[in-house]
Design a protein around this nucleic acid. Structure first.
Lengths: 215, 215
DNA sequence: CTTCGTCTTGACCATACGGTCAGGAAATGA
DNA sequence: TCATTTCCTGACCGTATGGTCAAGACGAAG
């Protein structure tokens, strides 16, 4: 067991571990800097300082600024997709949509920088992840719309346009990450407490679930 | 009457008119470029090209890039505040919140660039409009929260946390501007038609109004 | 027509940025 | 121990950017 744990942490010796760790540190720093300064405002020097590495070292692991940015955006997309699984295996809208809201609110709290990078990328016309929008996201959206439509047809919820319902879910949950600074300012400059996050999640859930006629 | 009309259009001769027109052209171009490229990614040259003026001319009207950006953000804030008036003079939540959703959806369609600049500014920590958040926006929010609470106390709507209800309204309506590119991609690359905008507005209204128990 | 203040703009400057590179340090394997 | 590969980094480079300036064009007023 100890052996297995070690193997999983250091799969192929110190070399691999160094690479893995440095890439992680750089990606974390880059996510934060890209979120706070935008792609154009972010500089490799800033990311290097945040990561505690010389700038030239960044270019050793990631050839260009754009390549680093691409990797950051892709990582975020993976997290989105994982949350999307909350939708499946649900007997009806109360469980499915409720779980989805909870999952996305949790992501907004845990990965605010990632959400901002994604928002920024989309706002600028999705120059990097346009293909993802046209393939993976489009397919996922179509599948969920069909599921919601099925729930409507089965009389499990009110006849609400599935597409715009999805947009509403995305908008509200991501708002708590993307506009976190505004929300914090309106909260007397304090980050939302555990209780306030729970309250926010509960309010969103209750309004939506009542709004689609399942409460 | 003709005299008055002329006076209001050309108050002080051609000089003033030239200044007014050039400032307008520059601000329009700047709003679009800031929205599409972000503050850091926007260049004075790009704005100048978009405005059809030489770069040096921009610096004649606006001393620095930051000053130009500040003016763009302030203009947007004014538009936000005007829409906020929809809330007042409403006898209850159906009219007040319904009108507010319609007004903000209309703004999202007519001023998508402005909405994106605002979102970008807030996401980057509101370096320029932090004072607005702490004064004007905070006051406005407090006033509307009190109004909503009054409606709840009077039994006109379900007891929904007023603060988070406001956040939900902002999130959903601005989402159609800020994430317009994603929405367009999911609409087979086509901008939303008049009918689709009406459908979106109707869906948001119906879910929210049912969600706060007034339908 | 002359004068004066406003507007226009090509050329220019200092700086900061993304990216390169050579040469050394450290880890690996025989 | 020694050879080989990977990792590290200070110094450097070409370019693009925000901003300046001086000289001229244009409208207003007498």
């Amino acid at each position: 067991m100890t052996q297995i744990a070690q193997v999983s942490r250091i799969p192929k010796g110190k070399r691999t571990e160094i690479r893995r760790e440095n890439e992680r540190v750089i990606l974390d720093a880059a996510e934060r800097v890209f979120a706070e300064a935008g792609y154009g405002g972010a500089t490799m020097q800033l990311i290097a300082d945040m990561a505690g590495l010389p700038k030239a070292n960044l270019h050793y692991y990631f050839p260009t600024k754009e390549a680093l940015y691409r990797q950051v955006v892709r990582n975020i997309f993976e997290i989105w997709l994982q949350a999307a699984e909350s939708f499946d295996d649900a007997p009806g809208p109360v469980e499915g949509i409720g779980a989805y809201i909870e999952a996305k609110m949790a992501i907004s709290r845990r990965h605010p920088y990632g959400s901002k990078v994604w928002a920024s990328e989309v706002m600028h016309g999705a120059p990097v992840i346009q293909d993802y929008l046209e393939t993976t996201l489009r397919d996922w959206t179509a599948g969920r719309m069909a599921l919601i439509q099925r729930w409507i047809d089965e009389g499990k919820m009110a006849p609400v346009d599935p597409r715009h319902l999805l947009y509403m879910l995305w908008a509200m949950t991501q708002h708590y990450a993307d506009f976190g600074h505004q929300i914090e300012t309106l909260n007397n400059g304090q980050p939302l407490s555990d209780a306030q996050w729970a309250e926010a999640t509960e309010t969103v859930k209750s309004v939506i679930l009542r709004g689609i006629g399942v409460i």
